[in-house]
């Protein structure tokens, strides 16, 4: 399993914003770093296939050797975590996890409960997500994503809204759970980049020294 960006270029009105040419091995975390507004989130939108109409894209994306460039977002099997957890407020915690778990899966309730227990959230399935703490919500969002069995994981500054102490804890939780998946992290925070422990590049593909 690997994620390969083959001469991926995103332009806006003819101006190149993103230029990436690299391969991320399973278990590797590639960090894309830069100030806000530099096009980091645009790069992720291009990867999951949700680029707004004004942007143009060239190049290819391969996941596990399969060309996913022309596939719609739902068929790509790339999970994404945002700055906010984007938990659905109309569903319970278990409902949110059920949303991620594929329909045919057997023992749905059992798998959801097991996932919660492993994440230190045992018995919280029926809770309203709004009643959880920031750290708990972040964990639920990751579980929801992982239950959908993605083949790669994209992280869009997922730690930036957490306070310092929680941040290290959730960061460790995410990198631990994502083991075995190719991961791309975009961030403007040096600590996140350092903790990720992998290569750090800019949106135009140059190595960034920390």
């Amino acid at each position: 399993m690997s994620l390969k960006l083959d001469k991926l270029v995103v332009t806006l009105a003819g101006q190149p914003l993103v230029a990436l040419n690299t391969e991320i091995a399973p278990g590797e975390v590639l960090t894309i770093m830069g100030p806000s507004g530099c096009g980091k989130s645009t790069a992720l939108a291009a990867l999951i296939g949700a680029l707004p109409p004004a942007f143009r894209m060239s190049g290819c994306v391969f996941l596990d050797g399969r060309d996913i460039t022309a596939l719609p977002p739902h068929a790509r099997r790339l999970g994404i975590l945002f700055q906010d957890d984007v938990l659905f407020p109309h569903l319970s915690v278990a409902g949110n996890l059920g949303f991620g778990l594929p329909k045919g899966a057997d023992n749905r309730a059992g798998r959801i409960e097991a996932a919660l227990a492993e994440a230190g959230l045992a018995g919280m399935g029926m809770r309203d997500p709004a009643t959880l703490s920031g750290g708990q919500r972040a964990r639920v969002a990751l579980l929801r994503c992982l239950l959908s069995e993605p083949r790669g994981l994209l992280l869009d500054e997922p730690f930036s809204k957490l306070d310092t102490e929680l941040r290290a804890q959730i960061r460790a939780f995410v990198f631990d759970r994502a083991r075995g998946l190719p991961v791309i992290l975009v961030t403007h925070d040096q600590h996140d980049a350092r903790a990720a422990g992998g290569r750090v590049i800019s949106v135009s593909g140059e190595e960034v020294a920390l």
Binding site: I48, A50, H74, R76, G79, F99, S148
Partner: peptide
């Protein structure tokens, strides 16, 4: 963003929108 989350979790357009 909700639609993006649903789509990246493998949902079809209409079903993803209706559910989220």
């Amino acid at each position: 963003r909700r639609q993006m989350v649903a789509r990246s979790l493998g949902y079809g357009r209409v079903t993803g929108w209706m559910k989220t």
